[in-house]
Simulated scan of single mutants.
Amino acid sequence: MKKLLAALVCAVFSLGASAAGNINAGKALAEKYACASCHGKDYNSPTEATYPKLAGQHRDYLEHALTGYKRGDKGYGRNNAVMTGQVKPLTNQDIKDLAAYFHSLPGTLVTHR
C-alpha cells in the first residue's frame, strides 16, 4: 500500500512538472533553435531594439506569445515571419519548456504597479 501511495505521489509531481515545462529541455531547445542570435546571449540584450527581452519574462505570457506565432494570429500582432518559422516545428510541450526556461533566467524587466 505504501508503494502504491508513493508511486501516485511521484506521478502527480512529475505530471505537474511537465505541465509547467521543463527548464533543461527548454534550454536545449533555445540552443537548438539559436534564440540567442536575435534575443542576445543572455536573453536580456536583443540584437535589435524591436526584439523583446525573454529572460525573466512571465511564463504564461511567453507561452501565449509563442502559441500565437505558431497559430499565425495576425489579428493579434503575432505575424512575424521569422518567429512564425521558428515556432512552427514546436510542440505544445516544447513551448511550455521554452517558456519555463526563459522565465527561470534572471531578467532586467521592471514591473510597475
Score class of each variant (00 low, 15 high):
104 S>P: 00
56 G>K: 04
89 P>M: 10
85 G>N: 06
100 A>M: 08
72 G>F: 08
86 Q>V: 14
93 Q>N: 10
85 G>D: 04
11 A>V: 13
70 K>M: 12
86 Q>Y: 08
59 R>C: 08
18 S>C: 06
52 P>W: 07
39 H>M: 02
88 K>Y: 10
65 A>F: 04
61 Y>H: 14
100 A>I: 12
112 H>G: 03
25 A>L: 11
44 N>K: 07
113 R>E: 12
78 R>Y: 10
85 G>Q: 07
55 A>Y: 01
54 L>V: 01
44 N>G: 02
36 A>M: 13
65 A>T: 03
25 A>E: 13
58 H>K: 14
106 P>R: 05
77 G>L: 15
46 P>S: 00
9 V>K: 06
61 Y>F: 14
67 T>N: 06
102 F>I: 09
34 A>D: 09
54 L>T: 00
24 N>D: 13
20 A>N: 10
83 M>T: 13
45 S>W: 05
36 A>Q: 07
28 A>V: 07
90 L>H: 06
7 A>N: 09
23 I>S: 04
4 L>C: 02
5 L>N: 07
23 I>C: 06
3 K>W: 11
69 Y>S: 06
8 L>S: 09
98 L>M: 08
60 D>E: 14
73 D>M: 11
41 K>M: 12
29 L>C: 04
93 Q>C: 05
12 V>F: 11
75 G>A: 12
103 H>C: 00
4 L>F: 11
80 N>W: 08
57 Q>F: 05
91 T>D: 12
26 G>Y: 12
27 K>W: 03
37 S>F: 06
102 F>W: 13
110 V>T: 14
20 A>F: 07
16 G>D: 02
41 K>R: 11
45 S>H: 14
109 L>M: 12
92 N>Q: 15
19 A>L: 15
90 L>S: 03
